[in-house]
Amino acid sequence: MEITVKNLLKKYNDKTVLKILDLHFTKGQITGLLGDNGSGKSTLLHIISGLDLDYEGEVLYEGACFKEENRQLIGMVSQKPYLFKRSVYDNIEYPLKVRGVPKQIRQEKVHKLMKNMNIEAISRQRAETLSGGEAQKVALARALAARPALLLLDETTSNIHEDAVLTIEEQLKVYHQETNCTIIFVTHNRMQAERFCDQCICLN
């Protein structure tokens, strides 16, 4: 999915928190979004995700404004994702369930995702009991379950163990190659951005 941001202005209580004249996220590319704290990286992701529609300017999805149907094509994982109070399996199954995917296909997809993320052993564990790295893997598997065309990652790999970071990066690369999706990856880690992304954008 191609994203174009034009003359975007976001204010909180009359204070400008984000101003972008022209920004383009090419279809099928992994874009690293860098910038200092408070530069508006997460705000931009929220706007692109369609969760925040209170702004001036334009955000175009394949040349068109945001529509409710776009939600079905967008996935997002935040730094501290909210996992539902149920098992790992049920968490990953949720986006498939709300889309009415038949049980048999759901099972296959969830098992494949858990295998790829190396979390099969904790499939019956409740989400509340997971470590930070495990929770991020589950959140990512859940976001990928619906095979989004646009994946927004808001400091997804911050504060987790290096092994988990590598697993997540590896799976993201595999998913990207399979689907040619657009990924916007917010990070503070320049090394990681250079390693993982096709292009980097710095917000000031």
Binding site: R71, Q72, R142
Partner: peptide, 24 residues
């Protein structure tokens, strides 16, 4: 709000978000 946002991002409609919040 966090549960609502998570539900919407995962493709739930308004009614499904309501059910999700009740479950959570």
């Amino acid at each position: 709000r966090q549960i609502q946002q998570e539900g919407l991002l995962l493709g739930a409609d308004s009614f499904q978000v309501m059910i999700l919040i009740i479950r959570e």
